[in-house]
Design a binder for these strands. Structure first.
Lengths: 141, 141
DNA sequence: GCTTCACGATATGTATACATATCATACGAC
DNA sequence: GTCGTATGATATGTATACATATCGTGAAGC
């Protein structure tokens, strides 16, 4: 008999579910309407202003098709500006608006505390161990 | 500066992404068209024939609204049968068809090998450790 | 200079994931 | 026995996630 709850794949999905739910709840309680993906996109755009959509997608391991919608929603919220790149009119360069920069600054500390919350049931040494193994599993793949 | 790739939430999402992709690829190569959720649903239905949709959803930590579509697709493939429960005409009881049972039997060993593949980069002791911590993080939440 | 090919993005279709609204049915209260 | 409430399911809307097709644009080859 297959004990679903013992399978790594099942447990990983559950943890991802919990992490997203904590993220969205925390944001919502603070009055922000941001998903994990939107936060990741804004963080990278803040670090590399002028990045194009395809490069952004690869930075955060997303599909190029998906990122379009994410960016569209961030533009609609007024957090991200999109402009056609002069040297390569096929590409669109992205940057944070002033409002986007402010929101990102406010939200980043909350995201950090959510990270602690996700690992809340572990001791410090267990957390470090878990992160090590996570990094090893994701590295390069 | 926020190093996205160091955040637990980000690493968990990436691992989930990898796990799903390995699952779907393995199934596809073997000629089966099954997602992880569909496999989970079929496994539980096989274990508890006659289960209703809401109970099934809670067993695999899914939304009741989502499970409807999952079941609909499994019915369309001919793997699951859905019937109105006589004692409670609001509910629908689920069971595997003969074809569904056969597919589940064929697919289960492959799913087990995918689990090993997901943890492929870890030693046996690291895998056990990782599973322990995963269980601890998910337990009860 | 024109064609072909590559590349960036959008469009479309399938499958989760979840909140909320709605609908049908069942059940308890009176 | 009718009413209000609880329950099981579907419908709708938003947001990923990804494959594939398509379109616009740029670049290389001739």
């Amino acid at each position: 008999m297959t004990e679903l709850a013992e399978l790594p794949g099942y447990l990983i999905r559950r943890l991802q579910q919990l992490a997203v739910s904590m993220f969205v709840t925390t944001m919502g309680e603070a009055g922000f309407d941001l998903t994990p993906v939107q936060f990741a996109a804004m963080t990278v755009i803040g670090q590399e202003p002028g990045i194009d959509q395809a490069t952004l997608a690869s930075r955060i391991a997303y599909d190029r098709a998906t990122i379009g919608g994410v960016i569209a929603r961030l533009c609609q919220k007024g957090y991200v500006a999109r402009a056609i790149k002069p040297e390569n009119r096929r590409a669109r360069v992205l940057s944070l608006t002033t409002s986007g920069e402010q929101v990102l600054a406010q939200v980043t500390p909350m995201v950090m505390s959510v990270q602690t919350e996700i690992l809340g049931d572990l001791t410090d040494s267990e957390s470090a161990q878990f992160l090590d193994l996570l990094r090893k599993l994701v590295a390069g793949r």
